[in-house]
């Protein structure tokens, strides 16, 4: 675990921040090889210290992702915490992702979702014409939980009116081979 110095504000969970960029050729098939751990943190102060050194998602090059997951959960479908889970996804036009991502991250770190241990992590994916933000939870079959996550997700992202969001169980994503 990350050591939190005295005087700093502990978070409920510790987190790992990962970065990935789609490689070319053979490497693109090995998602885990492209996954790089950027940092770990357990306090509010540690989070801001990492954040202040990072490029904001809106300024990342295409096909890059940030993955912010609780310590011990790898940002992959195959992880035990994720394999029965799913994610709420929103597709955003360019220019919105930095603000939305920051809002989502602060809600997650601050435990605003109020769904026990259900939240696994969040991902922002920078693509050619749009950016995609998602929040991952453990149990795709628990509708009460996923509805609660949806309501908080919508509220904290402060999305433009009429923005569609969708839920995808990871199991279905694997079956229909849809990517992030």
């Amino acid at each position: 675990p990350v050591d939190v110095p005295e005087g700093e504000h502990k978070l409920q969970s510790q987190y790992c921040l990962w970065y990935s960029r789609r490689g070319s050729g053979k490497q693109s098939l090995n998602f885990h090889l492209n996954l790089k751990l950027i940092g770990r943190f357990g306090s509010v102060e540690q989070y801001w210290r990492i954040y202040s050194h990072l490029v904001r998602p809106g300024e990342l090059s295409s096909h890059s992702d940030f993955h912010l997951f609780k310590s011990g959960i790898k940002p992959m479908w195959e992880d035990d915490a994720n394999k029965c889970g799913g994610k709420w996804i929103v597709r955003l036009r360019k220019g919105l992702s930095s603000r939305c991502w920051e809002n989502l991250v602060l809600a997650m770190l601050g435990e605003q979702f109020m769904v026990g241990e259900e939240i696994c992590g969040a991902v922002v994916s920078v693509r050619f014409q749009e950016d995609i933000i998602s929040i991952w939870n453990r149990t795709a079959s628990d509708t009460a939980v996923t509805n609660r996550i949806r309501d908080t997700f919508r509220r904290v992202l402060n999305l433009p009116q009429g923005t569609a969001i969708e839920y995808k169980a990871h199991n279905d994503s694997i079956k229909d081979k849809s990517s992030f």
Binding site: H9, Q12, W48, R49, L106, A107, G110, E111, Q112
Partner: peptide, 21 residues
């Protein structure tokens, strides 16, 4: 036990704390 909960405004303020630099 009790969860450690933080509001957005508090977290944003903490950004300017000397410990967060």
């Amino acid at each position: 036990g009790t969860k450690i909960v933080y509001e957005r405004a508090f977290l944003m303020n903490m950004r300017n704390s000397p410990l967060a630099k």
